[in-house]
């Protein structure tokens, strides 16, 4: 099992992060200074090094504005537990989320339709990789700035997650 996380390079705009930041401002939280969004793909299937490399560089990231890190995961419950992930490879550029920040990860519950994952499966076939795959898409938000536990919870509950269809995990660096 692999995780590929795609980052917008620091000098380019991170559009979804900016939108979330403006939503955070609109509910009166002024201590968050920057938000970056990264899609994280969990690839479950019998794939080899070069196939994952192709996926990351050709399909899941943009050659000019984005960079990626791929990790091999050892633990089964991959989204929630990332402590034992091992960096498999990256594209040589340092991923931008540097510095202290809180993170929020959100993903669809089992059995909820995710059109994007379906398209990715199609695209993997187009790449000539004909194997059985599962793809799970996770949205990861990096929040820079001082924040309390309650505020981080509020941001997650009020702006980002709908627990009817999604699960989430928060990793707060509290002030």
């Amino acid at each position: 099992m692999f995780k590929i996380e795609v980052f917008t390079k620091e000098k380019f705009k991170n559009s979804k992060g900016e939108l979330v930041l403006s939503d955070i401002l609109s509910i009166g939280v002024r201590t968050i200074l920057k938000v970056r969004y990264s899609p994280l793909y969990v690839i479950d299937g019998n794939v080899n090094y070069s196939e994952v490399r192709t996926l990351a560089s050709e399909l899941l990231s943009d050659k000019i504005t984005e960079t990626y890190v791929c990790k091999k995961c050892i633990v089964e419950d991959t989204v929630k537990n990332s402590k034992r992930d091992v960096v498999f490879f990256d594209d040589g550029e340092i991923p931008p989320p540097v510095g202290v920040c809180s993170t929020i990860k959100i993903w669809y519950k089992k059995n909820v339709t995710d059109p994007v994952s379906e398209s990715i499966l199609k695209a993997i076939k187009d790449l000539g990789i004909v194997k059985e795959f599962k793809v799970k898409r996770v949205g990861k938000y990096y929040l820079y700035g001082k924040i309390s536990r309650i505020t981080l919870h509020n941001i997650t509950a009020k702006l980002l997650v709908n627990t009817l269809i999604q699960e989430y995990m928060v990793n707060g660096i509290y002030s």
Partner: peptide
């Protein structure tokens, strides 16, 4: 009821 929620796929 949570199952009442549907997510669509316009491309289909």
């Amino acid at each position: 009821d949570v199952n009442a929620v549907q997510i669509g796929n316009p491309i289909v």
